[in-house]
């Protein structure tokens, strides 16, 4: 995003480029968090509008990315806490069909997304930032303002829980 943000001066074209470049990231964090496509779209739109109001204060492309991840993750946590969202499968909430190349097992992937969406909010944020955004423990800790040790231990517990539930789904005997 070299031209999307120029320090101190932002015009509409820059903002459009920022939106296009980061829309998949913001939308996907929200979608994997909420497991609800319309709600994720609404949340992502709000995040970008907040960015639009604050873009002048952001200093670099890296700052924009960091800001978007942090605001999106925190908003998702807030929304979940407010709504106490239950991951239910309703016709309107089933993910849109998509068949990217290399998908080994769509059923399993959908189930994993459901399992992630059923984790406690903080754990959910950790898992999404780790495996969707490929961030390391230090980066996640900085983003969510948590100690690195806490990130590490909570991520490990979240993975244990996911592993247990995923095995149960597959009908395995442990």
């Amino acid at each position: 995003m070299p031209e999307a943000v120029k320090a101190g001066t932002v015009d509409r074209i820059d903002f459009a480029e920022v939106v296009r470049e980061h829309q998949a990231m913001v939308f996907s964090i929200a979608y994997h968090f909420l497991h609800d496509r319309p709600a994720a779209e609404e949340l992502a739109q709000d995040v970008f509008l907040q960015l639009y109001r604050n873009l002048g204060g952001l200093e670099s492309p890296e700052h924009v990315t960091h800001w978007l991840r942090r605001v999106t993750a925190n908003r998702c946590i807030d929304v979940c806490r407010r709504r106490k969202l239950m991951p239910r499968i309703g016709l309107d909430q089933i993910p849109e069909p998509s068949s990217p190349a290399g998908v080994a097992d769509p059923l399993l992937e959908r189930r994993l997304r459901q399992l992630v969406a059923s984790l406690p909010e903080k754990w959910r944020a950790l898992v999404i930032l780790r495996y969707q955004e490929d961030l390391d423990n230090e980066e996640i800790a900085a983003l969510l303002e948590m100690p690195v040790g806490t990130v590490k231990s909570q991520l490990s517990r979240a993975l244990d829980l996911l592993r247990e539930k995923a095995s149960r789904f597959l009908g395995e005997v442990e």
């Binding site: 097992d105 995923a166 095995s167 597959l170 395995e172 005997v173 442990e174």
Partner: peptide, 21 residues
């Protein structure tokens, strides 16, 4: 019908190796 194919390493065992749940 619809048996998932992915396993999770050591945790997965096939039905032939183990009794049912």
């Amino acid at each position: 019908f619809g048996i998932p194919k992915l396993d999770f390493g050591a945790r997965r065992q096939t039905s032939k190796q183990t009794p049912p749940p």
